[in-house]
Amino acid sequence: MPEGDTVWQAARRLDTALAGQVLVTSDLRTPRLATADLRGRSVLDVTPRGKHLLTRVEGGLTLHSHLRMDGAWKIYPAGQRWTGGPAHQIRAVLGTGERTAVGYRLPVLDLLRTADEQRVVGHLGPDPLGPDWDAREALRRLLADPARPLGAALLDQRNLAGIGNVYMVELCFLSRVTPWLPAGDLADPEGLVATGERLLAANRERPVRTTTPPAVRDRARPPQRLYLYGRAGRPCLVCGTPVRVASVSHGEPGRERPAYWCPGCQRGPTPGRS
């Protein structure tokens, strides 16, 4: 699933391609929006909010989209063949005289009044990449339920908007605790929140997400850009202990996510051990 930094990059690409331009193509391929037509309206901006994208157009309208697991916006020069997937996966097409943005496999697509944006993003916590970032409020929300496992608290977008599974795993490792540690038992919650903001801010400008410093990254061949995520069974980059993986619940059935941890570096509960 794209995380906050990836969505921020997508918003910047869309904004660069569309903002300030008049739409000459508008095709929203969902039953509820099939008759909506944005042609003739100028795109004002494309703004990220956590993992949500808000494309604002002239006339007080916002096209809200969410990428979830495998959605994507692709941008093509006008007239170029679209190559992001088969035609039946296209959910939205927005075109100007110079560029065409094509939304593939978008599970969420809404057209609403810009004044009503809070209806779809008002529940989100502070966004480390947004102008509303408030570390104190993020910390307050994260610790509001001290007994909740830290991994689940980090994945809850009502606490910090934009933190996904990769960052959850990496932040727990950098804090040297397992994702199942009760959030209230975290020794330095302020440090975790600050590290999350720092990593997201750094990675929004990078083509490949990186959480490891060069001294650690280059120890492995090929160089490893993440400490734990996706490395089950391989040696920890810090202590060499094999990395383990289990599921952490998001709080809803079917929303479990793989959680990686190093038994040598991280303290706290693990599945089957309190």
Rank of each mutant, 00 (worst) to 15 (best):
M1T: 03
L94A: 07
V243E: 06
D134C: 11
G20F: 13
T55M: 14
D145Y: 05
G122T: 14
S274G: 08
R231Q: 15
L226F: 10
N159P: 02
P31T: 09
R225M: 07
H64V: 15
A202H: 14
M168R: 04
E3P: 02
R234A: 13
V93D: 08
G71V: 09
I75V: 15
P149L: 02
L129F: 09
G84A: 14
A232L: 08
R244E: 15
R41E: 01
V57A: 04
R176Y: 03
M1P: 02
R244I: 00
D156W: 08
Y104I: 12
S274H: 09
G164N: 10
P263R: 12
S26Y: 03
T100M: 10
T210V: 14
L106D: 00
G272W: 01
T83S: 15
L139E: 10
G230Y: 13
C172G: 07
T35W: 05
A152I: 01
G84F: 10
V121D: 05
R217M: 06
E3R: 13
E137Y: 02
L111M: 09
P253N: 08
E197A: 15
S247W: 00
R91T: 07
R99Y: 06
L160E: 01
P77H: 06
L109I: 02
P48I: 00
L139I: 07
G230I: 09
L38F: 07
D45L: 00
R68V: 10
P207G: 10
T241W: 15
G60A: 05
G125W: 00
V7M: 09
T6W: 00
R113K: 10
Y104P: 09
A10P: 00
G95R: 13
P179Q: 01
R91L: 12
S247Q: 09
A201Y: 07
L106Y: 04
T62E: 14
T6E: 12
R119M: 11
Q266W: 02
T62Q: 13
V208Y: 14
P107R: 05
V245A: 09
D132E: 07
R234P: 02
G191C: 04
G191K: 11
V22I: 11
W180R: 01
L111H: 05
P235N: 08
L67M: 11
L226K: 06
R81P: 03
E98V: 13
R267M: 10
